[in-house]
Simulated scan of single mutants.
Amino acid sequence: MAQLLKTVIYVDNVEEVLDFYYQAFGLSTLGLNDSGDYGELDTGEVVLAFAAHPLAQSQFKQNYIRCQPKQPALGFELVLQCDNVTECYDRAVAAGAEPFSPPVTKGEHIQAYVRAIEGTLVALVSVLGTD
């Protein structure tokens, strides 16, 4: 059986994206390598990492699609659990995220969507009674 260890998203500027995720969601940096082309965030059990596009190009030889903020979102999302979705949504937008869908109640959850500065779609969720 396999186990998910980390998610890596390729970006233009790793340090800028790490700072955005701290400002927007309060996620602390675990580390940034000396060349600044790879960094990781503390998200709990699974590491969220960012690497510069040239690393992907050297490994995959252009055999991947760049996520870009000005193009439609790619077919995946990150889901972050928040104590207060409205506050988390407002904080993310203030940090530069594109507002996608404001907080709404969906069954047992409150949910909102933003698009991070590098183009990743981020779902913000909480269980009713905690927001």
Rank of each mutant, 00 (worst) to 15 (best):
R66F: 09
R66D: 11
Q68G: 08
Q68V: 11
Q68L: 12
Q68H: 12
P69E: 03
P69Y: 02
P69I: 03
K70V: 00
K70T: 00
Q71F: 14
Q71H: 14
Q71V: 08
A73G: 06
A73K: 01
L74G: 06
L74A: 10
L74H: 09
G75R: 05
G75F: 13
F76M: 15
E77F: 12
E77N: 14
L78I: 08
L78D: 07
L78V: 05
L78N: 03
V79R: 13
L80N: 04
L80V: 06
Q81W: 15
Q81C: 08
C82E: 07
D83Y: 05
N84Q: 13
N84R: 10
N84A: 14
N84T: 11
N84S: 14
T86C: 02
C88S: 15
C88H: 13
Y89I: 13
Y89F: 15
D90M: 07
D90A: 15
R91W: 06
R91F: 05
A92T: 01
A92L: 01
A92F: 05
V93R: 04
V93L: 07
V93G: 10
V93D: 12
A94W: 02
A94D: 07
A94C: 00
A95E: 12
G96M: 02
G96A: 01
G96E: 03
A97G: 00
E98V: 02
E98W: 00
E98K: 01
E98G: 00
P99W: 02
P99Y: 04
P99D: 09
F100W: 02
F100E: 04
S101E: 07
P102T: 08
P102F: 11
P103A: 08
V104R: 13
V104Q: 15
V104T: 14
V104D: 15
K106M: 14
K106H: 15
G107S: 04
G107K: 09
E108D: 14
E108V: 11
E108T: 10
E108A: 14
I110P: 06
I110A: 04
Q111Y: 07
Q111C: 12
A112F: 11
A112W: 13
A112H: 11
Y113L: 06
Y113G: 01
V114A: 10
